[in-house]
Protein backbone atom coordinates (compact mmCIF):
# COMPACT_ATOMS: atom_id res chain seq x y z
CA UNK A 1 0.00 0.00 0.00
CA UNK A 2 3.06 2.26 0.33
CA UNK A 3 3.23 3.17 -3.36
CA UNK A 4 -0.25 4.62 -3.45
CA UNK A 5 -0.56 5.84 0.14
CA UNK A 6 -4.02 7.17 0.86
CA UNK A 7 -5.13 6.56 -2.72
CA UNK A 8 -4.92 2.90 -1.93
CA UNK A 9 -7.92 3.21 0.36
CA UNK A 10 -10.66 3.95 -2.20
CA UNK A 11 -9.04 1.48 -4.59
CA UNK A 12 -9.02 -1.27 -1.99
CA UNK A 13 -12.59 -0.41 -1.04
CA UNK A 14 -13.65 -0.64 -4.68
CA UNK A 15 -12.03 -4.03 -5.12
CA UNK A 16 -13.39 -5.18 -1.77
CA UNK A 17 -16.85 -3.87 -2.59
CA UNK A 18 -17.04 -5.87 -5.81
CA UNK A 19 -15.73 -8.98 -4.10
CA UNK A 20 -17.74 -8.61 -0.91
CA UNK A 21 -20.94 -7.61 -2.68
CA UNK A 22 -21.29 -10.70 -4.86
CA UNK A 23 -22.85 -12.99 -2.23
CA UNK A 24 -25.04 -10.09 -1.03
CA UNK A 25 -26.10 -9.46 -4.62
CA UNK A 26 -27.23 -13.01 -5.38
CA UNK A 27 -28.93 -13.61 -2.04
CA UNK A 28 -30.71 -10.26 -2.16
CA UNK A 29 -31.91 -10.77 -5.74
CA UNK A 30 -33.25 -14.15 -4.61
CA UNK A 31 -34.87 -12.69 -1.52
CA UNK A 32 -36.31 -9.89 -3.65
CA UNK A 33 -38.07 -12.40 -5.92
CA UNK A 34 -39.42 -14.32 -2.94
CA UNK A 35 -40.63 -11.19 -1.16
CA UNK A 36 -42.24 -9.87 -4.35
CA UNK A 37 -44.48 -12.94 -4.18
CA UNK A 38 -45.62 -11.88 -0.71
CA UNK A 39 -43.57 -14.19 1.47
CA UNK A 40 -40.38 -13.65 3.42
CA UNK A 41 -37.73 -16.37 3.56
CA UNK A 42 -35.41 -15.90 6.53
CA UNK A 43 -33.84 -19.27 5.75
CA UNK A 44 -31.51 -17.98 3.04
CA UNK A 45 -28.61 -18.00 5.50
CA UNK A 46 -28.96 -21.79 5.58
CA UNK A 47 -29.32 -21.84 1.79
CA UNK A 48 -26.18 -19.77 1.41
CA UNK A 49 -24.10 -22.11 3.56
CA UNK A 50 -25.59 -25.21 1.90
CA UNK A 51 -24.68 -23.65 -1.46
CA UNK A 52 -21.15 -22.98 -0.26
CA UNK A 53 -20.74 -26.56 0.93
CA UNK A 54 -22.33 -28.32 -2.07
CA UNK A 55 -20.59 -26.07 -4.59
CA UNK A 56 -17.23 -26.73 -3.02
CA UNK A 57 -17.86 -30.45 -2.69
CA UNK A 58 -18.92 -30.86 -6.33
CA UNK A 59 -16.02 -28.74 -7.57
CA UNK A 60 -13.62 -30.89 -5.55
CA UNK A 61 -15.11 -34.20 -6.66
CA UNK A 62 -15.54 -33.39 -10.37
CA UNK A 63 -12.94 -30.66 -10.93
CA UNK A 64 -15.57 -28.39 -12.52
CA UNK A 65 -16.27 -25.31 -10.40
CA UNK A 66 -19.16 -24.23 -12.64
CA UNK A 67 -20.89 -27.56 -12.06
CA UNK A 68 -20.47 -26.76 -8.36
CA UNK A 69 -22.25 -23.42 -8.90
CA UNK A 70 -25.13 -25.21 -10.64
CA UNK A 71 -25.46 -27.86 -7.92
CA UNK A 72 -25.33 -25.12 -5.25
CA UNK A 73 -28.25 -23.43 -6.99
CA UNK A 74 -30.16 -26.70 -7.13
CA UNK A 75 -29.65 -27.29 -3.39
CA UNK A 76 -31.06 -23.79 -2.87
CA UNK A 77 -34.08 -24.70 -4.99
CA UNK A 78 -34.75 -27.74 -2.81
CA UNK A 79 -34.59 -25.71 0.40
CA UNK A 80 -36.81 -23.05 -1.20
CA UNK A 81 -39.33 -25.75 -2.13
CA UNK A 82 -39.39 -26.96 1.49
CA UNK A 83 -40.04 -23.40 2.71
CA UNK A 84 -42.79 -22.78 0.19
CA UNK A 85 -44.57 -26.07 0.74
CA UNK A 86 -44.66 -25.67 4.53
CA UNK A 87 -45.75 -22.03 4.27
CA UNK A 88 -48.51 -22.95 1.82
CA UNK A 89 -50.33 -24.62 4.70
CA UNK A 90 -52.77 -22.40 6.56
CA UNK A 91 -51.73 -20.48 9.72
CA UNK A 92 -48.04 -21.28 9.33
CA UNK A 93 -45.74 -18.36 10.17
CA UNK A 94 -43.24 -17.79 7.37
CA UNK A 95 -40.73 -16.09 9.71
CA UNK A 96 -40.58 -19.11 12.02
CA UNK A 97 -40.28 -21.54 9.10
CA UNK A 98 -37.46 -19.42 7.69
CA UNK A 99 -35.49 -19.53 10.93
CA UNK A 100 -36.09 -23.28 11.26
CA UNK A 101 -34.85 -23.73 7.70
CA UNK A 102 -31.81 -21.59 8.44
CA UNK A 103 -30.84 -23.82 11.39
CA UNK A 104 -31.64 -26.97 9.38
CA UNK A 105 -29.57 -25.80 6.39
CA UNK A 106 -26.61 -24.88 8.60
CA UNK A 107 -26.78 -28.25 10.38
CA UNK A 108 -27.05 -30.20 7.13
CA UNK A 109 -24.19 -28.28 5.52
CA UNK A 110 -21.90 -28.89 8.50
CA UNK A 111 -22.94 -32.55 8.57
CA UNK A 112 -22.36 -33.24 4.88
CA UNK A 113 -19.43 -30.85 4.55
CA UNK A 114 -17.19 -32.49 7.12
CA UNK A 115 -15.04 -34.32 4.49
CA UNK A 116 -14.49 -31.14 2.42
CA UNK A 117 -12.87 -28.96 5.08
CA UNK A 118 -9.32 -30.09 4.29
CA UNK A 119 -9.11 -30.67 0.51
CA UNK A 120 -8.49 -27.93 -2.07
CA UNK A 121 -11.12 -27.57 -4.78
CA UNK A 122 -10.69 -25.80 -8.17
CA UNK A 123 -11.92 -22.21 -7.90
CA UNK A 124 -13.91 -19.94 -10.19
CA UNK A 125 -12.00 -17.76 -12.68
CA UNK A 126 -11.70 -13.96 -12.59
CA UNK A 127 -11.46 -11.35 -15.34
CA UNK A 128 -8.35 -9.16 -15.28
CA UNK A 129 -9.51 -5.64 -16.09
CA UNK A 130 -6.32 -4.13 -14.67
CA UNK A 131 -3.92 -5.52 -17.30
CA UNK A 132 -3.02 -2.00 -18.47
CA UNK A 133 -1.58 -0.97 -15.11
CA UNK A 134 1.77 -1.77 -13.53
CA UNK A 135 0.49 -1.14 -10.04
CA UNK A 136 -0.37 -4.36 -8.20
CA UNK A 137 -3.04 -2.51 -6.19
CA UNK A 138 -4.84 -1.39 -9.34
CA UNK A 139 -4.63 -4.89 -10.75
CA UNK A 140 -5.98 -6.41 -7.54
CA UNK A 141 -8.85 -3.92 -7.41
CA UNK A 142 -9.85 -4.55 -11.04
CA UNK A 143 -9.75 -8.31 -10.80
CA UNK A 144 -13.46 -8.94 -11.20
CA UNK A 145 -15.00 -12.35 -10.66
CA UNK A 146 -17.33 -13.69 -13.33
CA UNK A 147 -20.23 -14.31 -10.95
CA UNK A 148 -20.34 -10.59 -10.11
CA UNK A 149 -20.62 -9.76 -13.82
CA UNK A 150 -23.45 -12.28 -14.18
CA UNK A 151 -25.20 -10.77 -11.17
CA UNK A 152 -24.73 -7.24 -12.50
CA UNK A 153 -26.44 -8.25 -15.75
CA UNK A 154 -29.11 -10.24 -13.92
CA UNK A 155 -30.22 -7.30 -11.75
CA UNK A 156 -31.54 -5.06 -14.59
CA UNK A 157 -32.81 -8.16 -16.40
CA UNK A 158 -34.93 -9.12 -13.39
CA UNK A 159 -36.21 -5.56 -13.05
CA UNK A 160 -37.28 -5.64 -16.69
CA UNK A 161 -38.83 -9.09 -16.31
CA UNK A 162 -40.80 -8.09 -13.23
CA UNK A 163 -42.56 -5.29 -15.09
CA UNK A 164 -42.65 -6.57 -18.66
CA UNK A 165 -43.39 -10.28 -18.61
CA UNK A 166 -46.35 -12.46 -17.77
CA UNK A 167 -44.30 -14.12 -15.03
CA UNK A 168 -43.39 -10.80 -13.46
CA UNK A 169 -47.00 -9.67 -13.52
CA UNK A 170 -48.13 -12.91 -11.85
CA UNK A 171 -45.47 -12.57 -9.15
CA UNK A 172 -46.36 -8.97 -8.38
CA UNK A 173 -50.11 -9.62 -8.48
CA UNK A 174 -49.80 -12.45 -5.96
CA UNK A 175 -47.55 -10.35 -3.75
CA UNK A 176 -49.73 -7.27 -3.81
CA UNK A 177 -53.13 -8.82 -3.26
CA UNK A 178 -53.55 -12.58 -3.00
CA UNK A 179 -57.33 -12.45 -3.13
CA UNK A 180 -57.40 -10.30 -6.24
CA UNK A 181 -54.78 -12.53 -7.86
CA UNK A 182 -56.87 -15.59 -7.06
CA UNK A 183 -59.88 -13.94 -8.70
CA UNK A 184 -57.73 -13.29 -11.77
CA UNK A 185 -57.09 -17.03 -11.91
CA UNK A 186 -53.57 -17.22 -10.53
CA UNK A 187 -52.70 -20.21 -8.35
CA UNK A 188 -51.31 -18.15 -5.47
CA UNK A 189 -49.43 -20.93 -3.72
CA UNK A 190 -47.89 -22.20 -6.96
CA UNK A 191 -46.64 -18.71 -7.92
CA UNK A 192 -45.15 -18.31 -4.44
CA UNK A 193 -43.56 -21.75 -4.72
CA UNK A 194 -41.88 -20.70 -7.97
CA UNK A 195 -40.82 -17.36 -6.46
CA UNK A 196 -39.27 -19.04 -3.44
CA UNK A 197 -37.60 -21.79 -5.49
CA UNK A 198 -36.11 -19.22 -7.87
CA UNK A 199 -34.97 -17.19 -4.86
CA UNK A 200 -33.35 -20.27 -3.35
CA UNK A 201 -31.53 -20.96 -6.63
CA UNK A 202 -29.94 -17.50 -6.61
CA UNK A 203 -29.08 -17.70 -2.91
CA UNK A 204 -27.42 -21.08 -3.43
CA UNK A 205 -25.27 -19.57 -6.19
CA UNK A 206 -24.36 -16.73 -3.83
CA UNK A 207 -23.16 -19.39 -1.40
CA UNK A 208 -21.00 -21.10 -4.01
CA UNK A 209 -19.20 -17.78 -4.53
CA UNK A 210 -18.06 -17.85 -0.89
CA UNK A 211 -16.44 -21.25 -1.14
CA UNK A 212 -15.32 -21.15 -4.78
CA UNK A 213 -14.01 -17.60 -5.09
CA UNK A 214 -13.70 -15.54 -1.94
CA UNK A 215 -12.66 -16.53 0.73
CA UNK A 216 -12.38 -19.60 -1.52
CA UNK A 217 -12.46 -22.49 0.89
CA UNK A 218 -15.08 -24.41 2.81
CA UNK A 219 -15.34 -24.21 6.59
CA UNK A 220 -18.08 -23.84 9.14
CA UNK A 221 -17.50 -20.10 9.60
CA UNK A 222 -17.73 -19.34 5.86
CA UNK A 223 -20.71 -17.00 6.11
CA UNK A 224 -20.75 -13.89 8.24
CA UNK A 225 -24.52 -13.59 8.14
CA UNK A 226 -24.90 -12.38 4.54
CA UNK A 227 -27.94 -14.61 4.09
CA UNK A 228 -29.87 -13.12 6.96
CA UNK A 229 -28.77 -9.58 6.16
CA UNK A 230 -30.09 -9.91 2.62
CA UNK A 231 -33.52 -9.40 4.15
CA UNK A 232 -32.49 -5.95 5.37
CA UNK A 233 -30.76 -5.26 2.08
CA UNK A 234 -33.92 -5.90 0.08
CA UNK A 235 -35.81 -3.44 2.25
CA UNK A 236 -32.96 -0.96 1.86
CA UNK A 237 -33.29 -1.46 -1.90
CA UNK A 238 -37.05 -0.97 -1.81
CA UNK A 239 -37.75 -4.30 -3.54
CA UNK A 240 -36.05 -3.06 -6.70
CA UNK A 241 -33.53 -5.52 -8.25
CA UNK A 242 -31.41 -2.72 -9.69
CA UNK A 243 -31.20 -0.98 -6.32
CA UNK A 244 -30.26 -4.39 -4.86
CA UNK A 245 -27.09 -4.14 -6.96
CA UNK A 246 -26.35 -0.67 -5.55
CA UNK A 247 -27.14 -1.75 -1.99
CA UNK A 248 -25.02 -4.91 -2.33
CA UNK A 249 -22.05 -2.78 -3.43
CA UNK A 250 -22.64 -0.47 -0.47
CA UNK A 251 -22.86 -3.37 2.01
CA UNK A 252 -19.81 -5.03 0.46
CA UNK A 253 -17.89 -1.75 0.45
CA UNK A 254 -18.65 -1.08 4.11
CA UNK A 255 -17.17 -4.46 4.94
CA UNK A 256 -14.03 -3.61 2.95
CA UNK A 257 -13.59 -0.17 4.56
CA UNK A 258 -12.26 -1.57 7.84
CA UNK A 259 -9.38 -3.65 6.35
CA UNK A 260 -8.54 -0.85 3.87
CA UNK A 261 -8.20 1.75 6.63
CA UNK A 262 -6.23 -0.73 8.71
CA UNK A 263 -3.64 -0.92 5.96
CA UNK A 264 -2.98 2.83 6.27
CA UNK A 265 -2.74 2.66 10.04
CA UNK A 266 -6.27 3.40 11.19
CA UNK A 267 -7.13 0.42 13.34
CA UNK A 268 -9.83 1.62 15.70
CA UNK A 269 -13.49 1.29 14.85
CA UNK A 270 -12.90 -1.70 12.58
CA UNK A 271 -16.07 -3.47 13.69
CA UNK A 272 -18.15 -0.33 13.76
CA UNK A 273 -17.63 0.01 9.99
CA UNK A 274 -19.09 -3.48 9.63
CA UNK A 275 -22.18 -2.30 11.47
CA UNK A 276 -22.57 0.78 9.25
CA UNK A 277 -24.92 -0.83 6.68
CA UNK A 278 -27.22 -2.11 9.41
CA UNK A 279 -27.35 1.24 11.19
CA UNK A 280 -27.97 2.91 7.83
CA UNK A 281 -30.81 0.49 6.99
CA UNK A 282 -32.38 1.07 10.40
CA UNK A 283 -32.11 4.87 10.01
CA UNK A 284 -33.58 4.62 6.53
CA UNK A 285 -36.51 2.60 7.87
CA UNK A 286 -37.05 5.08 10.68
CA UNK A 287 -36.99 7.97 8.21
CA UNK A 288 -39.35 6.44 5.67
CA UNK A 289 -41.70 4.26 7.71
CA UNK A 290 -44.97 5.62 8.92
CA UNK A 291 -47.72 4.38 11.15
CA UNK A 292 -50.21 5.48 8.51
CA UNK A 293 -49.06 3.59 5.42
CA UNK A 294 -46.78 0.80 4.28
CA UNK A 295 -43.34 1.32 2.78
CA UNK A 296 -43.22 2.50 -0.81
CA UNK A 297 -42.57 -0.34 -3.22
CA UNK A 298 -43.36 -2.99 -0.65
CA UNK A 299 -45.48 -5.98 -1.67
CA UNK A 300 -48.57 -5.48 0.48
CA UNK A 301 -49.03 -9.20 1.20
CA UNK A 302 -45.67 -9.27 2.98
CA UNK A 303 -46.07 -9.89 6.70
CA UNK A 304 -43.18 -7.63 7.68
CA UNK A 305 -44.54 -4.56 5.95
CA UNK A 306 -48.08 -4.78 7.25
Amino acid sequence: MEALGWWGVPLAVLGGAIRGSTPFLFVSLGECLTEKSGRINLGLEGTLVMGAMSGYGVSYLTGWPWLGVLVAGMCGMLLGAVHASICARPRVNDIAVGIALMLFGLGLAFYLGKPFIQPKAPRLPAMQFGWWSDSPQVRAALEVNVLFLIGAVLAPALLWALYNTRWGLALRAVGDNADAARTMGYAVNRVRLLGTVAGGFLAGIGGSFLSLYYPGSWNEAISSGQGLMAVALVIFARWDPLLCLVAALLFGGAGALGPALQSVGITSGYYLFNAAPYVLTLLLMIATSSTQRTLRGAPSELSVTK
Binding site: I86, V92, A100, F104, G107, L108, Y111, K114
Partner: peptide, 23 residues
Protein backbone atom coordinates in the same frame (compact mmCIF):
# COMPACT_ATOMS: atom_id res chain seq x y z
CA UNK B 1 -20.44 -35.70 12.99
CA UNK B 2 -21.44 -33.43 15.89
CA UNK B 3 -23.65 -31.51 13.46
CA UNK B 4 -25.98 -34.55 13.44
CA UNK B 5 -27.98 -33.16 16.35
CA UNK B 6 -28.34 -29.87 14.46
CA UNK B 7 -29.91 -31.76 11.57
CA UNK B 8 -32.22 -33.51 14.05
CA UNK B 9 -33.15 -30.20 15.67
CA UNK B 10 -33.86 -28.68 12.25
CA UNK B 11 -36.11 -31.60 11.25
CA UNK B 12 -38.07 -31.37 14.51
CA UNK B 13 -38.54 -27.60 14.11
CA UNK B 14 -39.76 -27.92 10.53
CA UNK B 15 -42.14 -30.82 11.18
CA UNK B 16 -43.68 -29.25 14.28
CA UNK B 17 -44.16 -25.92 12.47
CA UNK B 18 -45.75 -27.81 9.57
CA UNK B 19 -48.14 -29.52 12.01
CA UNK B 20 -49.68 -26.17 13.04
CA UNK B 21 -52.66 -26.46 10.64
CA UNK B 22 -53.69 -29.72 12.34
CA UNK B 23 -54.98 -27.85 15.38
Amino acid sequence: PDATVHVMRGIIFLVILASEPLY
